[in-house]
Nucleic acid binder design. Sequence first.
DNA 1: TAGTGGTCTAGACCACTAC
DNA 2: TAGTGGTCTAGACCACTAT
Lengths: 241, 241
Amino acid sequence: MIKVREDALQHLEIAEYLINSIRDGEFKVDEKIPSENTLCRKFQANRHIVRQAIARITNLGWVTPVQGKGCYVNRISQPIQYELSSKTRFTENMDRNGIKHSCKLLHWEKGLPNEDEQENLEISHEEMVYRLEILRFIDEKPISVTTTSIPEKEVPDLEKHFKAFQSLYAILIDHYYFRPVRNKSIFQAVLPGLKDSELLEIPESVPIIQIESLANHPGGSPVEYSVSRLRGDMNKCLVEF
Amino acid sequence: MIKVREDALQHLEIAEYLINSIRDGEFKVDEKIPSENTLCRKFQANRHIVRQAIARITNLGWVTPVQGKGCYVNRISQPIQYELSSKTRFTENMDRNGIKHSCKLLHWEKGLPNEDEQENLEISHEEMVYRLEILRFIDEKPISVTTTSIPEKEVPDLEKHFKAFQSLYAILIDHYYFRPVRNKSIFQAVLPGLKDSELLEIPESVPIIQIESLANHPGGSPVEYSVSRLRGDMNKCLVEF
DNA sequence: TAGTGGTCTAGACCACTAC
DNA sequence: TAGTGGTCTAGACCACTAT
């Protein structure tokens, strides 16, 4: 067992104080906690220590520091529950729960498949795939980013339907007359990469749920391989058996 | 967009160097990376910066610092894939994949149910529950901690069977003649609390997968409510639909 | 211009490990 | 005793926001 000096770990005490103050409503949602300097004076602590404390409660999701302004208390919303089954999709999930949402096609490309795509989609190394990167929002705040791969042969000229992009599944159903069925999903808890943390507007220490999914033609062959990364503090996933 | 000084974020450069060196095999698994002081000299950087870099690669799972000794490179094992379905249990999962595992009953108690337990197990506030805390190991390393609640009426005198605890399900089947069936699971990515990080022997910034599950009597009423917390860097969960 | 958070330097003392 | 990582102090300059 590692000993700890009695007066040490002061940053944990400060973090605890801040969390309790937020819980008690002393620091209110969307308002600011005291500045670093103020906290230094209050606790007779070094700025470094105060910053450690703030880093901790930031990672725990309580506040978001903004350069030049201050450190804002987050609205602690219950995470959105996302139901995964063979049929549910993001859009239906949100609509069914009456949650206002939107999405944005960040990027698309047509290219040769990587190994994961070849294996999961059961295609050869020379069959082209469409690759879409989609960012989803709830209350104008980004909550997930998804990379989806579909073989070109399944959706020729897919890019013709990208104007006013609303939902990939709407395009598949309206223009290609099929609706993929979720076959399997693999869940992991990971830390975001630099790109993810920028897109999702979270610090690099907020955990994210990564869901790697494969969807098939109804009763048939694999057609859509996707990797989604959801903010851990705003999402949870329900699976019923 | 926030600007960054060109010479700034030096700690990210150092972190990148360290990761690349580990990847390239320059720093080998189970050996130590150079000491903080050595890195300070090498990069002409302040110790604080070097420590930031080390904190980063620690959180990303590459190394584990040990006081007084050094900073050891972790064996990057592919995460263990854990298959969740209505029937699979930890023990069967591991056995099927030929993974050597063990577990330990950390604590047990009999007490009144909390709100979650009342709701999920569909019991009144005065029906006692057994509450078990189980730590699971793979290769002698802790990988998950689970809290399981079962109404006392389902398993009277449960504690009589705790000697040489091997598997809760073995006890249920051998002595109470039923085998719970998984009904639903809720996945979240969270950061560990202090207690979790101690039990799982991970720093507080390594994400964990939290799985809240409910299991029923075959075709019947709820009988087991559990919350598991798995090391994110060592586990992934597969669900097939 | 003043105040905020972001980054970095320099140096101190402590606890733990190895010798 | 020397070397390691853990914690903390004191102070600097920067970028951003508000006034």
